[in-house]
Amino acid sequence: MAFILKDEDKNFVLEELKRYESKYSAIIPSLFRIQKKEGWISAEAVSVLSEVMGLPEAHINEVLQFYTMFNKEPVGKLHVQVCTNVSCAMNGGRELAKKICQKYQVKEGAVSQDGMITVTRVECLGACDKAPMMQVNDKYWEDLTQESAIQILEDLKQKVVG
């Protein structure tokens, strides 16, 4: 399916282009906007963005590739990011990531068969006093146990399914 930038998103990009001292500064916010709608950023999206922004595709790609928060491939409806840095590792973060992968039969970074879940290990998210923790899409979930994390994901799944 071809990527189409909706009018409201195009207007957002045009506003961001005026917001900062440099047009280039609008790239990161614009990529975030697309990702929020699409879940990830495709080559087509970059191409359309390049045209709207009047900036080289190569440059947008360079920014896209550099930052880890941009999904360069589709992710599940629930993007589960488990912190496995020091304080979380000391409190079972790595085992938690494994457990979630097992439960949803998905390899790290891949999308589960039902399109629902992607699990990634991430670096410190600044919630070390409440380790282990995970970020699901935008939201932090802290002080987890394997059981509580699975319960949270089950509830979120229900919400997504509606």
Partner: peptide, 26 residues
């Protein structure tokens, strides 16, 4: 104004942050 980073530890280094705010790789 606020500006959102996009996931890069190196942008906490002040010149990396400046690059990022300029719309470049951090």
């Amino acid at each position: 104004d606020v500006y959102s980073g996009a996931g890069a530890y190196i942008c906490g280094e002040e010149t990396g942050m400046i690059s990022s705010l300029e719309g470049l790789k951090g």
